[in-house]
Amino acid sequence: MNALTRPARLVEAIGRGVLDTVRAAGRLALFALAGLSHLLRPPFYWRNFVSAFGEFAFFSLPVVALTAVFSGMVIALQSFTGFSRFNAQSAVADIVVLSVVRELGPVLAGLMVAGRVGAAMAAEIGTMRVTDQIDALGTLSTNPMKYLVTPRLLAGALALPLLVVVADILGVLGGFVVSVVKLGFAPEAYVMNTLAFVQPMDVIVGLAKAAVFGFLIALMGCYNGYNSKGGAEGVGGSTTASVVAASILILCFDYVLTEMFFSR
């Protein structure tokens, strides 16, 4: 009897897990659609948008800049070590610019911002939820989705590409400094190589990725915060969940977008 019921229980558990996942994905999709639908219906809360935009673009600049510079420097070092085995050191500039613009710029900026802004967003909205502030909005003729979520989703999608432009420039600069100062590359040749190799499409797709990542960070921060329950512990849990979920989604969508635009 037990031997028969055990596999059945396992199937039941797997089935329940799948259903829960599908249900959660559906709830998230509906939440995103509700947030976006308010873009088309006035009023739009510009103050909240500007504040969220500042959090994304301006206050995240130092951490993203540092990450980009050091990533560019490390890629230069590592690719030089690898390519020198095949006498292909001249490809260092190409590798640096390609990896920074296509991948590391958007992905690292996204991960950093998910940890900084996504977490703060979830904590702020989560605290508003458990202290009745979101209910209070509803009693003051204000739709909480329109007030809290829509401006943040738009700010995330618009601000991260700007941040990634800076990250791209600084990442390439980091690679340039290491290549010229430490590895002995000629500055003019390095710059010429970089400019010759990078295509407008590389930059455009990198920025498109950044827009998607920014939207996902804001979405996960808002969704987890909005659905917080159970006081301080619940807010802590939703903050963690927002960072973890945003980071995983960034990496998944990075693959999907790369596959869409760059696979041949």
Partner: peptide, 23 residues
């Protein structure tokens, strides 16, 4: 309807006058 919540539920990110004039 106007509502006074149990813990007042004031918006932390706004000044007191902005809370009062919110509605």
């Amino acid at each position: 309807i106007g509502m006074l919540f149990q813990n007042a539920a004031l918006f932390d990110s706004l000044l007191v006058w902005e809370n009062v004039a919110f509605g």
